[in-house]
């Protein structure tokens, strides 16, 4: 259902190449904006620093996932082989954990398996995807982000955002086709 009411998402400015985007990002960062982002068809080397983004926390999540995998595999094997149904094969001791070298392959594989899935779901959680829609897709020009165009979007939620000031700022730093992105409520 569409109404005539619109919500302002922010200003979207277009840049032709990586070089311009990179320097624009430095300007936006230095101007003190908080809620803004660059959009590009591929990751750009060094843009994180130009935007002032912190390093991803994902490795810590994955480390925890990996440890969970190792312990899961250890207890899976210890409990089933030594407690529930002690299996006497290959002359391996069953009373203690001395058969542990034979458990290493499964412990290793589950470490990798749990880490990989933590990477996937951790990534999705950190970037807040999947989501069905996003106000930025209301812009017709934005579809080119996945082809050959680079964008900077400063959101209206930013405390420094102003209808005139932000537009002028984006034009000053070289943004083309500066556009107010609004989506239906």
């Amino acid at each position: 259902m569409s109404t005539t009411l619109k919500r302002v998402h922010g200003y979207l400015a277009e840049f032709e190449n990586v070089h311009d985007l990179y320097h624009a990002a430095e300007h936006v960062r230095d101007a003190g904006y908080q809620r803004w982002d660059c959009h590009s068809p591929f990751p750009i080397h060094g843009l994180d620093q130009a935007m002032g983004i912190q390093r991803s926390k994902l490795p810590w999540l994955v480390f925890c996932g990996g440890i969970t995998g190792t312990t899961t595999a250890f207890f899976l094997q210890y409990i089933t082989q030594n407690v529930l149904y002690p299996t006497v094969v290959q002359a391996k001791p069953i009373t203690a954990i001395w058969a542990i070298p034979a458990w290493f392959p499964v412990m290793f594989e589950l470490t990798i398996l749990f880490s990989a899935f933590t990477t996937l779901f951790g990534l999705l959680a950190l970037i807040g995807l999947p989501r069905f829609n996003h106000p930025i897709f209301a812009s017709k020009r934005f579809a080119k982000f996945s082809d050959d165009t680079f964008f900077v979007c400063i959101e209206a939620r930013d405390p420094k955002f102003s209808q005139e000031g932000t537009k002028a700022f984006l034009e000053k730093i070289g943004g083309k086709h500066v556009e107010l992105v609004e989506d239906d409520i």
Binding site: C38, F42, M51, I53, R55, S56, L58, V62, L123, I127
Partner: peptide, 21 residues
């Protein structure tokens, strides 16, 4: 595509995830 919009705040995590994998 999960609603991918090429945001650099996403690419930053994405590249870390890719490296980890």
């Amino acid at each position: 595509a999960l609603g991918w919009r090429g945001a650099n705040r996403h690419w930053s995590h994405y590249e870390t995830a890719y490296m980890l994998l």
